[in-house]
Design a protein around this nucleic acid. Structure first.
Length: 484
RNA sequence: GGCGCUAUCGUCUAACGGUUAGGACAGAGCCCUCUCAAGGCUUAAAUACGAGUUCGAUUCUCGUUAGCGCUACCA
C-alpha cells in the first residue's frame, strides 16, 4: 500500500515551495490510489506558532487539497523517545554529556574555521558503567547516533529522482537523536514517525537529500525497512537564494496568491510546471489531468527559479496560467468567484450584475482582483475625474467631440439598449456626422468609462443602462465646455 | 573549509549518442479590430568552460568554474 506524507513544521506561513511539496505528494497518492498523510512536524516548541499552523490549513483549504490521515508530532513524543532509547539500548547510540555550547545569535563560529566535527571521542567511547552512572546522577546529556565508521565505509540509497546516492561514513557526524531536554530531534522524530506510520515514499525538498544518509542509518537502527525517497529540486528566488519567508516576504506565501486572485487550479497548475514536466508540450492541465499523468520520472533535478520582483510579485507565467484558466471558465462560475474581490474593492455587489459584467472582463483580467481596476466604472456612481482631452477622438478636435457627444445623447435617449440596437444606431450616428465609427465611439467610451481602454462599447452601454449613460455623457459635455 | 547535488534561450522546460536543439511565458513586429484585451502569423533568444570516449556528443567520463544544499541539543 502506497503511503506518502507532507510534514511541514509550523514556523512560518505556508510558502509556495511547501505547497508544491504537498501537491506532488498528493498527486502521487491520488495517481496511485495511495494514502495521503498530513503530519505536523512541531517538535521545535520554541519556534512553532499557531499563526503558522493556521496558515498551513488556510492555504491547503484554499487549494482544495485534502488528506486521509492527520498526525501531530508533538503528540507522539513518547514513541520517539521509546524508539530512541531502543537504539541507545542496542548500543547503536551513546550519551554525550558535553555541555551545550552557549550559542549566542551573533557569534556563531565562521563556517570556514569550524572544520569538520564528527564526534567527541571521550563521549563516544565512554564506558557503559560511567555513562549509566552519570545519567542516573541526573547529569544532562544528548543521545547521539554512533555512526559506524569502522564496520563500513559508506551509506547508500537510491533516490527516485536523483538516482543512486552514496556518502562516506567518515563524512557523517554523530548526529543527535534526543536533546538534553529529552525531546527528540527532527531526524529522530521524523524517522520514528515515518517507520511507525509505514510511509512508503518520502517525497520532500532536495534540502533533505544529504540528511537522508542519516535517516537511512536510523531506519536501520530501528530495524525498519527504509521507505523509498524522492527529492524535489528546490524553488529559488531570482536572486538565486532559496525561497524564504524572511528574506522574500509575502510574495512567497500561498495566501498572497489567493488574495491577489489566483484560481486554486491555476496555482496548482503553475506550481506543477516548476521542477516537473509532462514531457509533451502541454502546459495548461486540469487537476484530473495532473493526477492522471503525474509521475516521479517527470521530476527533474535542477532548481527552478520563480520569476518575481518587488514590482512584479508574481511570475509572468503564473499570471498567464491564471488568465488561461479564467478565460475558459464558465461565466456563472467566474461571476461567483469574482464577487469577493469586487466586494473587497468596495463595490456594491449584485450577483446578477456581476454575471452581466463577467463576459466583458473575462479575457481582460489576469487576476481576480483586476476586477477593481477593469470594471470599476460599472460600480461607481460617479466616475473619478479624467482629462477631458481624452474625449477628443483620433484625428479629431474638440468640436468633433462636442458633436459626437451631442449626437450620442440624442441617439441613446431613444435607441434600443441591445448590442445590435446600439450598434446600428451609433454607426448611423457616425455616418450622419460624416466621421469614422472609431471617432464616434471613443468620446462615448471615455464619457461612459472614464478612460480610453475598456471593454467593447455596445455591451458596456447595455450593461450600464440608458440612464447612467446619458448622465455620464451630460457630465462629459460639461467638462468639454469648461475645458474650452 | 568538508561533503553532497545541479548546470539547455531572460524564465519554466523538451530532446533516453545522429534534430535546422522543440514548446511555453515574457520581448519585438505584422494581421484582425470601435479602444483595450483575446486570437492568428512572424521574429529574436540557449547546450557554462576545457579535455576525453566515439564515425558522431546537449546527451557518457574526467577536470575547471559557478550556483544551491547539508555541515545545530532548527526543521
Amino acid at each position: 500500500m502506497l503511503r506518502v506524507r507532507f510534514a511541514p513544521s509550523p514556523t512560518g506561513y505556508l510558502h509556495i515551495g511547501s505547497a508544491r511539496t504537498f501537491i506532488f505528494n498528493w498527486l502521487y497518492a491520488r495517481h496511485t490510489g495511495g494514502t495521503m498523510i498530513l503530519r505536523i512536524d512541531d517538535t521545535d516548541v520554541e519556534r512553532n506558532t499557531q499563526t503558522s499552523l493556521d496558515s498551513i490549513f488556510e492555504g491547503l483549504k484554499w487549494l482544495d487539497l485534502n488528506w486521509d490521515e492527520f498526525y501531530r508530532q508533538s503528540e507522539r513524543g513518547d514513541l520517539h523517545r521509546k524508539l530512541a532509547n531502543e537504539i541507545l539500548a542496542k548500543g547503536l547510540a551513546y550519551r554525550d554529556f558535553t555541555p551545550m555550547v552557549a550559542e549566542a545569535e551573533g557569534d556563531t563560529t565562521p563556517d570556514a574555521t569550524r572544520g569538520t566535527w564528527l564526534f567527541n571521542a571521550e563521549m563516544r567511547d565512554l564506558p557503559q558503567e560511567e555513562s549509566d552512572r552519570r545519567a542516573a546522577a541526573g547529569e544532562p546529556f544528548v543521545v547521539r547516533y554512533r555512526v559506524p565508521r569502522e564496520s563500513r565505509t559508506d551509506v547508500t540509497f537510491v533516490d527516485e529522482v536523483y538516482g543512486p546516492q552514496s556518502k562516506a561514513t567518515a563524512d557523517i557526524e554523530d548526529f543527535a537523536l534526543l536533546r538534553s531536554s529529552g525531546a527528540p530531534t527532527y531526524h529522530m522524530a521524523s524517522c520514528a514517525d515515518d517507520a511507525d506510520l509505514r510511509i512508503s515514499h518520502i517525497i520532500r525538498g532536495q534540502d533533505h537529500l544529504t540528511n537522508t544518509f542519516k535517516h537511512v542509518l536510523i531506519f536501520e537502527a530501528l530495524g525498519a525497512e527504509a521507505p523509498k525517497f524522492a527529492h524535489l529540486p528546490l524553488l529559488i528566488a531570482p536572486d538565486g537564494a532559496k525561497l524564504s519567508k524572511r528574506k522574500h516576504g509575502p510574495v512567497v506565501s500561498v495566501t498572497t496568491y489567493r488574495d491577489a486572485g489566483f484560481l486554486p487550479q491555476a496555482f496548482v497548475n503553475f506550481v506543477c510546471l516548476l521542477g516537473w514536466s509532462p514531457k509533451d508540450d502541454r502546459e495548461i492541465l486540469t487537476r484530473q489531468q495532473l493526477i492522471d499523468i503525474f509521475t516521479l520520472e517527470g521530476v527533474n533535478r535542477s532548481n527552478a527559479t520563480i520569476n518575481f520582483s518587488e514590482a512584479d510579485p508574481f511570475d509572468p507565467k503564473a499570471m498567464w496560467v491564471n488568465a488561461e484558466n479564467l478565460r475558459t471558465m464558465p461565466l456563472d462560475d467566474l461571476a461567483t468567484v469574482l464577487a469577493p474581490y469586487a466586494q473587497a474593492a468596495g463595490f456594491h455587489v449584485d450577483a446578477a450584475r456581476l454575471r452581466q459584467i463577467a463576459p466583458l472582463i473575462q479575457e481582460r483580467i489576469k487576476l481576480l482582483r483586476d476586477v477593481a481596476t477593469v470594471a470599476d466604472f460599472f460600480f461607481v456612481d460617479e466616475l473619478p475625474p479624467y482629462d477631458p482631452a481624452e474625449l477628443i477622438p483620433q484625428k479629431g478636435d474638440s468640436a468633433m467631440a462636442h458633436a459626437v457627444l451631442e449626437r450620442a445623447a440624442e441617439i441613446l435617449a431613444t435607441a434600443e439598449f441591445s448590442h445590435d440596437g446600439l450598434d446600428g444606431a451609433l454607426r448611423g450616428g457616425a455616418e450622419s456626422l460624416k466621421i469614422k465609427a472609431g471617432q464616434m465611439f471613443q468620446p462615448i467610451r471615455v464619457a461612459v468609462c472614464g478612460r480610453k481602454n475598456a471593454p467593447p462599447l455596445f455591451e458596456t452601454l447595455e450593461v450600464l443602462g440608458r440612464e447612467v449613460c446619458l448622465k455620464r455623457i451630460a457630465v462629459a459635455r460639461e467638462m468639454l465646455k469648461e475645458a474650452a
